[in-house]
Design a protein around this nucleic acid. Structure first.
Lengths: 138, 138
DNA sequence: CTTGAACCTCTAGTCACTAGAGGTTGTATA
DNA sequence: TATACAACCTCTAGTGACTAGAGGTTCAAG
């Protein structure tokens, strides 16, 4: 049996976050000692690891809740899990695309101003202030 | 002079968000009509556009506040603006890197489960549950 | 037995918004 | 001039995923 702190160390999920996940229903209510401290078995450790993995992959608490329900009902279609994972993949791809655009623009404005000037002539500030200027330079 | 709604339409920033930016100090307190409605001049429109651009580039409210202060003090070094933009660029690059890793992993688990099975044999769920399995397959 | 780390619940805060209640204003139209 | 309705106002509280801290209790090592 693990205390919440031990669970935290093993999964790298913070103690308050574990409590939060319990409140959100992702973790089952833990058994308690006579002193009201949570104690987790291996199933609890596995559940938290699952949650951690999914969070790291960007799944929302809600999506993880759905995945967990599927896990608890092995008779349900795997399609349901894929229906959660595939939009998540699309979301990640959209974010990458957007961030690449941002990167390009930030790189442009960062490079163009080498820090020599005064802010009155600052290209960073000008680029933010004048989107028309930005467009022309693309 | 623009009403807040007109400003919103021109900048695509929502009305409550404009009020929020005023509360956060990014927008100057607007002039008011006798009926207490905000009215903005072209300087207000330009300021909001600046804020919108910077937000779109991922700058935090705090960073934008600093950029605005630089803008209002043209005697200050352009270096200060670059010192805000360059870490932002680094942050975006780090995010891209992380998202690409996530994309790869999500693509792998999404593809491997074609939705034919039942969730008891679901690769999506297995991959989330067993990080060791994940490692072995890389 | 003592001590201090780790535990508990509860409240509220973070960030960047967003929603809605209840009331007022501005403007177009009849 | 009166009416109607969209747009405005402030205020409170909520969203999502945490995070922080107060005040108190428990656990385990020495």
């Amino acid at each position: 049996m693990y205390s919440i702190g031990e669970l935290s160390k093993r999964t790298k999920v913070k103690v308050p976050t574990i409590r939060y996940y319990e409140e959100m229903g992702l973790m089952a209510q833990a058994e308690r000692t006579d002193g009201n401290q949570r104690r987790y078995d291996n199933a609890g450790l596995e559940r938290l690891s699952f949650i951690r993995q999914a969070r790291d992959l960007g799944f929302s608490i809600e999506a993880i809740s759905s995945l967990i329900e599927l896990q608890e009902h092995p008779d349900r279609s795997c399609e349901a899990a894929t229906n959660i994972a595939v939009p998540q993949l699309a979301d990640v791809r959209a974010k990458i695309k957007r961030l690449k655009t941002l990167e390009k623009e930030l790189a442009r404005i960062s490079k163009a101003c080498d820090g020599d000037g005064i802010s009155g002539d600052c290209y960073v500030l000008e680029a933010l202030a004048d989107h028309g200027l930005c467009d022309r330079k693309h």
